[in-house]
Every structure is written in structure tokens, then in C-alpha cells.
Design a protein around this nucleic acid. Structure first.
Length: 839
RNA sequence: GCGGAAGUGGCGGAACGGCAGACGCGCUAGCCUCAGGAGCUAGUUGGAGCAAUCCAGUGGAGGUUCGAAUCCUCUCUUCCGCACCA
């Protein structure tokens, strides 16, 4: 009788996995590959149970796939750049590099103590030059292809600290440190031209059939394709000949009673210059601009510029307004106001008492501009629209777009919400952007041979002033690679999302010093077969990765479009109803749980409470429950080893008693369900349920022959004599240990060894399902009469529908309900139920 | 406002359109133990009954079907995402 000592097993087998390099892999074209990846971690210092859930999910998949015969790549790395390390440096003086590396070391220990089966030799950290060198390499390639470019853009500026703030550093419009109100400020910044791939990124979504629908929808909305038209309204008394608007409803143009410009529209400046009081005009427009842009419906404001434009369809002059809710970055930055048929325009018109014209009505409908309380934004046929009267709105839309094109006053066009990706960050702890600014040659890329441009070590962080790198003169001042004259390095660093946009490719070839990765191993391992992580990355990270994959494809480095075949977004772990966080004081440290119950119990519990994509509420009691289950498994197998194991196990044959046959059936049924639950449905909780059922069955089976796992108090167990009983138990126990190993690998290894299998579980094979064994010899089929269960019949397995029908109608319990009545219908459903309808 | 997902015991959650509540937690009773926060056995949706069993039951109202937690329509509630994108 051996006691279950999980902590000892954890240590023993983790050491074994490390020394035997159990999870290290190489490309092997002769075997099917499986790339299993969890989103890499930000090294915040301590992983809590919420983080760790994701790694366990991936590990269950990786371990299962290994035993299913796949060559499994399961790597891990660190998303190590980012603001928190820099903020900590500002607050506590800890240097970003030192604190990040220390955090990584600690968290790596945590993951190892959980027994996650990573190929640690492929570990990467984005803050190390051998990784970020290739951020720079890719940046230069994108620069060459016009996919990276500079333009002026607005940032959050703290006027007191005199520094740029990241969005996360702006709290309710104020600086996180000093609380002063943040101002918009224009800076020259770098952008990636993701919009060049808008259409492709949108179309690619249709191929992502193994992604959660929710994520696909979010990306589709984010890309935000809409078809419409640009229409030119001629200007009167202006050097600019016209103002162009974008609309998806050109069919409502006869109702366009005004034009609205975004405050930053170029015409606003021009109008200001030519207005009686330019300063006041500009100030009004500027006031709209600097307001928080997220003023919701109801916060509308605007003013009349005093200028007019000609509606190209009606020929009438309409006033031009500036409106705070018109977006400068979308469409043309100008819209036509159709108050009768757009909720926002209606509100604006009511606010400033502008005229409303009805131009679309449903059949039999009679709208009145005076009495209507909301815009009629829906479908209908045109009225008050000249030659287009009576046309259904969609047809009118097509005709009017064509007519506008013919007359040269507009054109059909497609707009996207997606904007180019601003990658400049005025921060220290990121990848230096590899260009220099030369007075003579302008922006000059750093030659590839000079990569990486390494981050200089900085001693102190104040969080004040412009980019920290600008204050390191010996780093900033260089000679221009083009002319040899004096030049300054770019002092902005890259958004950390650049790192995460291609790190999964680096894992395929992590030591490459010449290229981000070699196309050959990437071609073998990619795409990632299974990717899991938090929903919070549903848009940015996953979209940027899809963008980068296409860029790298166009560079000839990969030959596919989509990096992640199957995606799982795991739910969060709550404690006391809230997401775990240090400030709330409700974090559960996996190390504490491991110390108490061992890694296996923690792993099993987190997988058992709910399906992976659901939120779970942490419960100590639940963890104890799964620990008890492990004890049950341990005692069962321990007992088996003590009494029978190792004595020469006979093979299963057909010479079985009913009980033996039933056990074998349960074993194979469990194999089928567990395999499907893990591989197909990712319902890890029900996979565990099935294993629990098998264990229960084994305990029940042992009653009367030998107790499978007697309580300590009980007398020594009897021996199992019958060969077929031994064979069936052996089959069940082997299968159980293998199938539980993805969840509880340490215990499984120990038991596997005790069961006498050589070579450790890395040599173990997943049990194979035998449909013939799983099939019952006879089936009990319920019989319904008029929807109510009235009897059960026993029939040989594989009985035909006709046989079942006959048996059902002959059954005495059923006869009692149908005699004297007319049988209308008898349905046999998939051989598992008979339904009789009588009247 | 738009979009998505979901509503099942005291709780977490199971149920290819086919015996609702698997599995577990908690709880109840009993056994076993020096003791137990260990182990074992039985019970645990509600109502009726000693019982076998019967009736009701998956947010609500309709519908399709021999048969609906599951599919359709409407409705209520909750959670999530986006949010003045013209």
C-alpha cells in the first residue's frame, strides 16, 4: 500500500521530463504535426490561477495530441516589453530589464511547477535583442514596401509632466500621475498600412470556421466595410470648388438640408480665415476637437459657418455647419444632414431648428415633418425626389449612384472603419524603431547589417519630458548611413503589439540569427493548429497577427494566409464574483494550491468546473473534491498493482461474463467520449466526468470479486482469479491512466510506471476505441404511447426497426395503453426509442 | 442604439430533436473510526404515496413535430463586445 504524495510526485516527474527532454521536438515530415499554442505571457511577476487556466487547457491538448501520435510543438515565451515595467521604473526605480527578467524567472518556475509540457528550449522573450532585431528587420521590409510610413497624428499630452501618455495612462481624461487634464497634440508618428489589406482581412474571416463566431463578428465589425457614395456639393464664393461627403444613403439626398463638417476638416480652417472673426471661429471649432470624443448621443453641438453648398440633385443651396460628432478620420470628414431619415441628423436639426424634408415613406405611410418624433431610417419608396419618386429605396440608391457618376458629381465607393495602425510609442521599454533622421537625407533606414539597434541602458526614469531615449545623447547622435554626416536616431519605440504579431512564427526557428525564421520549419509547423487565450485579444492582437502573416507572405517567408486554424477564447477565473487582481486582494496563487494539493488536483479542478470558454468562480471546496477523486484513482490503481499487476496479464477475449462485458463496454464508451470531448469539442469538463464514471464503475465492479480499493479499515482484499476479469480490469485501468494523464500527468506517470510500462508516458499511446466492444449485446428500448413513457422492451443489439416495432406492440405494459384504441402511427427513432400514437 | 452569447435543482454544470438534471460540490441519514475537514453506503427538482408508481417541471407566451431544454416567432432578463462610422 503506497500513499499518494502529490508534492513528491510533482518534483520527481518534473525532473524526469526536464532531464529526458520529453517535450522537445524537431521537424519530422514523416509524422503529422500539431502546433499547440497559448498566448504568451506578459511577465507581470506572478501568474494567478486565472492566467494559468489557459496554460492548462493548452497542455491538455498538447499531451493528448502527443499520445495520439502527433509531433507536437508546444512552446512558450514572454511578451516582455511594455508600459508596466516602465511605470514601475518611474515609481520604484527598478530598472525595466532587471525587473522583467526577474519576473520571467519567477513565472517560469510557476509554470514548471504546474507540469506544463513546454519545449523550453524554444523559449523567447521579446525584450531580448535576438528577438527584437527581427521586429526591426520586418519594419525595414515594410518601410521598403511602403507599408510603414510617417504622418502627423494626435496623442494624449500631459502639459504638467510634459510627456505623451498612453491610453492606459489616461484616467477619465486626466494624467495618471499628476491628474492634470490631458490635451491632444499632433506628432509625426509611424504607421503600418493595415488598411491595404482591409478586403483580404475581411474575406479571410470566412475561412476561420474553427474560430468562435463572436470573435469573427467582432473583427468584421472592426474592419467595418460599408458601401456608399461620395458626392460633391459645389461651394459658392470659395477657392475650393466643392465639399465632398460620404453617404450610404444617396437615395435620401433630396432630403439633405444641410452639410456638416468635422471640426478638423480642412475647409473649417479655410472658412475661418475668410470669416469676419477668424480667431473666434477657430476657437469654436477647436473647442469641439479637444473635448472627449466619446460624448454620447445627446451631447451634440455645432455652429453654422455661414457658408453654403449646392445639393447636386436638387440644385438648392444648403447651409454648412461644423458639428462635434462628425468624425474627421472617417469617410471624407463631411456628411450630408438628412434629418428626416437619420437619427443623428434629426436630433441635430431639432436642436438648431433646421428644416426637415421627408423623402422616403413606406407603403401607405404618410410622414409629417412637423409631427414626427424620430427619423424614419428604414426602408420605403421615394417621395419629394423629382424623377426618382416611387422607386424603392435600394433601387433608387443604385440609380442615383450611377447618375451621380454619369454627371461627375459623385461615385460609388467602399469605406472601412479600419484605420492604419499607429505603432510609434514615446516610451523606453520597447523595440527601437530602426531609422535615423538626417538633416540632409531625411529619414534613413538603419542598414540590415547594423541590426539590432539595441536599447541603451538607462539609469533613471522620471516619466517627465519627451521620449526617454531622447535623453541619451551618446545613443541618439550617430552618423547618417547615407551621407556620413551627423544624424539623430529615432527616439520612439514600437507598439508591443508588433512583437505579438509574429512571435508564433519565431517559435518555429527561435535561434535563427539571419532571418525572423526560416521558411522551411515554419512551413512544417505553421499554421498554429490550436491557439488559446483571452477574449480581450479578439480584435487587436488577432487582427494584427493576421495582417503580419499576409505581409510576411508577400515577402515570401510563408505561403499561407491565416496563422491560427482553431481558436479558443478561455473564460476568466473569478473569486468572490470579481476578476482576480492584486488591488482587490482576491488572487489565488497556484503555488499555494500546489503546495496543499499538488499540481494535478489544481489542474484537474480548473478543467472540471466548467467548459474552457466559460467564466468560473474559484472554490476551495471544489478543489478538495477533485483531490478526493485523484485519491480514489490512486487507491484503485494502487490496489490493482498490489494484488494483480505484473503477474502476466491475459488478453481480452470473447469468453466473458456479463459483468466483464459490461466493464469492457464502459471502458470503450469512455474512450470514445473522452477522445471526442478533448479533440473535437474541447469540453474538458465532460471528459473528466466520463473518467469519473469509469472510476465509479470500476469500484462497483470490484464489489463481490475483490474490492478495487478498500478503505484502510477493511480486511485485506480477496484475489481476482478469473483470467477474463483480470484482462478486463487491466484494459480499463490502463486506459484510465492514459486518459487521465493530460489532466493529472504527475500521478499518471507514477501509476504508469507502477503498472509496469517501460519508458515513461512519452511512449504511451492513447487507447484505441473498439466499436464492437462498445456495442451492447442487447438494448433496452423505452416505449412511449402518446408521448408518455409506458414500457421498456429488451431487444438484441442491431434489431431492425420492424422487430422493435413488433416487440413494442407485444409488450404487456404497452398493450394496456393501446388495447381498444386505434394505432395511428408507430415511429422507431434511431433504434433507441419507440413512439406509438393512438387515439 | 447596433451586434453577439446565454437563461436547466441549493451551487458548478450534463443532455446527435428521443428516458431532463450525467459528473461533481453542498446537504441529510447510516456505517466505520480514539478522533476527523479521512473512508464507505444510501438519499438529494417540486408535489402526492409506506411503496411500486403517478402528476408537474428546463425565464414567459405561441408554433413546428409522433416527440422540443434543444428548431421557429414574439417577449422578458442577464452577461459581453462596439458605440455619433453617416
Amino acid at each position: 500500500m503506497a500513499d499518494y504524495k502529490p508534492q513528491e510526485l510533482d518534483k520527481k516527474w518534473q525532473a524526469h521530463w526536464t532531464s529526458s527532454k520529453a517535450f522537445e521536438v524537431d521537424t519530422d515530415p514523416s509524422r503529422p504535426k500539431y502546433y499547440c499554442l497559448e498566448m504568451f505571457a506578459y511577465p507581470s511577476g506572478h501568474a494567478h490561477v486565472g492566467h494559468v487556466r489557459n496554460y492548462i487547457i493548452g497542455d491538455v491538448m498538447a499531451r493528448t495530441k502527443r499520445m495520439r501520435g502527433f509531433n507536437v510543438l508546444h512552446p512558450f515565451g514572454w511578451d516582455a516589453f511594455g508600459l508596466p515595467a516602465e511605470n514601475a521604473a518611474i515609481k520604484t526605480g527598478s530598472l525595466p530589464k532587471a525587473s522583467t527578467l526577474a519576473n520571467i524567472a519567477h513565472m517560469k518556475g510557476q509554470l514548471q511547477r504546474l507540469g506544463i509540457s513546454y519545449a523550453w528550449s524554444r523559449e523567447i522573450a521579446t525584450c531580448l535583442p535576438d528577438f527584437y532585431k527581427f521586429n526591426q528587420w520586418i519594419f525595414l521590409k515594410m518601410l521598403e514596401r511602403g507599408l510603414a510610413y510617417r504622418k502627423r497624428s494626435t496623442v494624449n499630452w500631459c502639459p504638467v509632466d510634459n510627456t505623451v501618455l498612453a491610453n492606459e495612462q489616461v484616467i477619465d481624461g486626466a494624467c495618471w500621475r499628476c491628474g492634470s487634464i490631458v490635451e491632444p497634440r499632433d506628432l509625426e508618428q509611424w504607421f503600418f498600412r493595415i488598411t491595404q489589406y482591409s478586403d483580404e482581412l475581411l474575406a479571410g474571416l470566412d475561412t476561420l470556421t474553427d474560430w468562435p463566431e463572436k470573435v469573427v463578428v467582432m473583427q468584421r465589425n472592426w474592419i467595418g466595410r460599408s458601401e456608399g457614395a461620395r458626392v460633391k456639393f459645389a461651394l459658392t464664393g470659395s477657392p475650393t470648388p466643392f465639399v465632398e461627403v460620404f453617404t450610404t444613403r444617396i437615395d435620401t439626398i433630396y432630403g439633405a438640408n444641410f452639410i456638416m463638417l468635422a471640426p478638423e476638416h480642412s475647409l473649417v480652417a479655410e472658412f475661418a480665415d475668410r470669416s469676419p472673426d477668424p480667431a473666434a471661429f477657430r476657437a469654436r471649432a477647436q473647442a469641439f476637437r479637444s473635448q472627449e470624443r466619446d460624448v454620447r448621443m445627446g451631447g451634440k453641438e455645432g455652429f453654422d459657418t455661414g457658408r453654403q453648398a449646392i445639393n447636386p440633385f436638387t440644385g438648392q443651396a444648403v447651409p454648412i455647419w461644423v458639428a462635434n460628432f462628425v468624425l474627421g478620420e472617417y469617410g471624407t470628414g463631411a456628411v450630408m444632414g438628412v434629418p428626416g431619415h437619420d437619427a443623428r441628423d434629426f436630433e441635430f436639426a431639432k436642436l438648431y431648428d433646421l428644416p426637415i424634408t421627408i423623402v422616403v415613406e413606406r407603403e401607405g405611410e404618410r410622414l409629417s415633418a412637423e409631427t414626427m418624433t424620430a427619423a424614419h431610417a428604414g426602408a420605403g419608396a421615394l417621395v419629394n425626389s423629382g424623377e426618382y419618386n416611387g422607386l424603392p429605396w435600394e433601387e433608387a440608391n443604385r440609380r442615383m449612384t450611377a447618375d451621380a457618376e454619369a454627371r461627375g458629381v459623385g461615385e460609388g465607393t467602399v469605406q472601412y472603419r479600419l484605420r492604419d495602425w499607429g505603432v510609434s510609442r514615446q516610451r523606453y521599454w520597447g523595440t527601437p524603431i530602426p531609422v535615423v533622421h538626417c538633416e540632409k537625407d531625411g529619414v534613413v533606414p538603419v542598414p540590415y547589417a547594423d541590426l539590432p539597434v539595441e536599447l541603451p541602458e538607462i539609469a533613471t526614469f522620471t516619466g517627465r519630458g519627451d521620449s526617454p531615449l531622447a535623453h541619451v545623447p551618446e545613443w541618439v547622435n550617430v552618423t547618417c548611413p547615407a551621407c556620413g554626416g551627423p544624424a539623430r536616431r529615432e527616439t520612439d519605440t514600437m507598439d508591443t503589439f508588433v512583437d505579438s504579431s509574429w512571435y508564433f512564427l519565431r517559435f518555429c526557428d527561435p535561434a535563427n540569427t539571419e532571418l525572423p525564421f526560416d521558411p522551411a520549419p515554419a512551413g512544417y509547423w505553421m499554421p498554429v493548429d490550436f491557439y488559446s487565450g483571452g477574449v480581450e485579444h479578439a480584435i487587436l492582437h488577432l487582427l494584427y497577427s493576421r495582417f503580419f502573416t499576409r505581409v510576411l507572405r508577400d515577402l515570401g517567408l510563408v505561403n499561407f494566409d491565416e496563422p491560427f486554424k482553431r481558436l479558443l477564447t478561455q473564460g476568466m477565473v473569478l473569486k468572490n464574483g470579481a476578476v482576480m487582481s492584486k488591488s482587490k486582494g482576491n488572487v489565488v496563487d497556484p503555488d499555494d494550491m500546489i503546495e496543499k494539493y499538488g499540481a494535478d488536483a489544481l489542474r484537474l479542478y480548473v478543467m472540471f468546473v466548467a467548459p474552457p470558454e466559460k467564466e468560473i468562480e474559484w472554490s476551495d471546496a471544489g478543489l478538495e473534491g477533485t483531490f478526493r477523486f485523484l485519491m480514489r484513482v490512486w487507491r484503485l490503481v494502487d490496489h490493482w498493482c498490489e494484488t494483480i499487476g505484473g503477474e502476466g496479464i491475459p488478453a481480452c477475449s470473447d469468453d466473458c461474463t456479463d459483468a466483464e462485458r459490461a466493464l469492457r463496454r464502459k471502458t470503450h464508451e469512455t474512450i470514445r467520449r473522452v477522445t471526442g470531448d478533448i479533440e473535437e469539442r474541447m469540453h474538458l469538463n465532460t471528459a473528466i466526468s466520463s473518467l469519473m464514471e469509469l472510476v465509479n464503475e470500476l469500484y462497483a465492479f470490484s464489489e463481490g470479486t475483490a474490492r478495487g480499493a478498500p478503505s484502510r479499515a477493511e480486511a485485506p482484499p480477496g484475489r481476482v482469479e478469473r483470467a477474463q476479469t483480470i484482462a478486463a480490469l487491466h484494459e480499463a485501468i490502463d486506459a484510465l491512466v492514459v486518459m487521465i494523464s493530460p489532466f493529472a500527468p504527475h500521478m499518471a506517470e507514477e501509476l504508469w510506471q507502477r503498472l509496469g510500462h517501460p519508458g515513461g508516458m512519452e511512449k504511451a499511446e492513447w487507447p484505441s476505441f473498439d466499436a464492437n466492444v462498445a456495442k451492447a449485446a442487447e438494448v433496452v428500448v423505452p416505449v412511449q404511447v402518446n408521448g408518455k413513457l409506458r414500457g421498456r422492451i429488451t431487444a438484441p443489439a442491431g434489431a431492425s426497426d420492424d422487430q422493435l416495432r413488433e416487440l413494442a406492440l407485444a409488450d404487456p405494459a404497452v398493450r394496456g395503453h393501446i388495447d381498444g384504441k386505434t394505432i395511428r402511427k408507430v415511429v422507431v427513432a434511431k433504434g433507441t426509442l419507440v413512439s406509438v400514437v393512438v387515439s
